[in-house]
């Protein structure tokens, strides 16, 4: 696979590990299986995002007009805040019982581990977004004028959030103060996600598809850069601690 650097591919081949995509798939299935049995994201993170949505309405003028206008921004802030918890969970499972060492010794390409974890977090975020969209439609009266554009413009910010989140959560994984450090590290990096995704949704709401599309393009490039960065540097991050 062209993503992996020559050294990592070489090492993976030496250890006779599975290929990049298959490796990523294994990690993805493993993470989703852990989630299926522990239900941390579905029972804790999604309700957290829901209460954030509700509290925003308390803090802001509850008149429908202002909430409607703010709905895209509040939606993406809720997603990013919840994502910090989700990625924190995704790497916490590796920190317990020496799982990180096991992962390192498994012969999987670190890039595959990264991609698998990003995919698992992204899938969980999609689930979260579906619930939150229902939330903003019901609570804020957010009109869905372009049903096709919502998923299209949510894909890139979701991947970008997952990639930056997994990268930073792994970075902070072995640190004792990771719960407080992770938001400080991840949130400024995700500033363009909140801004861009919220603007794209607002633009779609105002039927200016050209503008929405421009934001989607920017976010796609951003997501691609973050994923490429993670693929290139993850082996070093996984080895430490």
């Amino acid at each position: 696979m062209s993503f992996a650097s020559p050294t990592t591919t070489h090492l993976a081949a030496e250890r006779r590990g599975p290929g990049l995509l298959r490796g990523a798939m294994l990690v993805l299935v493993k993470d989703l299986r852990i989630e299926a049995s522990s239900r941390v994201v579905t029972n804790q993170v999604i309700p957290f995002a829901g209460i954030v949505l509700l509290m925003f309405a308390f803090a802001v003028d509850p008149a429908r007009q202002s909430l409607q206008g703010m709905a895209p921004g509040l939606f993406w802030i809720a997603v990013v805040l919840a994502a910090v918890l989700a990625v924190s969970r995704a790497t916490a499972v590796e920190n317990e019982n020496g799982a990180r060492d096991a992962l390192r010794l498994s012969g999987l390409d670190p890039a595959a581990v990264f991609l698998g974890k990003v995919a698992a977090v992204a899938i969980q975020l999609v689930l979260l977004e579906v619930v939150l969209v229902i939330g903003v439609v019901v609570l804020y009266g957010f009109p869905i004028v372009a049903p096709g554009l919502l998923p299209a413009s949510a894909a890139a910010p979701t991947v970008a959030t997952a990639a930056a989140g997994v990268l930073y959560a792994t970075l902070a994984g072995a640190i004792r103060s990771r719960e407080t450090l992770l938001p400080l590290l991840a949130l400024p990096v995700l500033a363009p996600v909140v801004l861009g995704a919220a603007r794209a949704w607002s633009a779609a709401g105002e039927h200016s598809m050209g503008e929405a599309w421009r934001w989607v393009q920017l976010l796609t490039i951003f997501a691609a850069v973050l994923v490429a960065f993670g693929v290139a540097t993850y082996s070093g991050l996984l080895e430490e601690a």
């Binding site: 590290l185 400024p188 500033a191 363009p192 490039i221 991050l237």
Partner: peptide
């Protein structure tokens, strides 16, 4: 080093989006 590089890469995207 990883955090520093991600931070600097982030800057043009932030600037452009703002």
């Amino acid at each position: 080093a990883v955090a520093g590089l991600v931070a600097v890469t982030d800057v043009p995207v932030v600037h452009l989006s703002v």
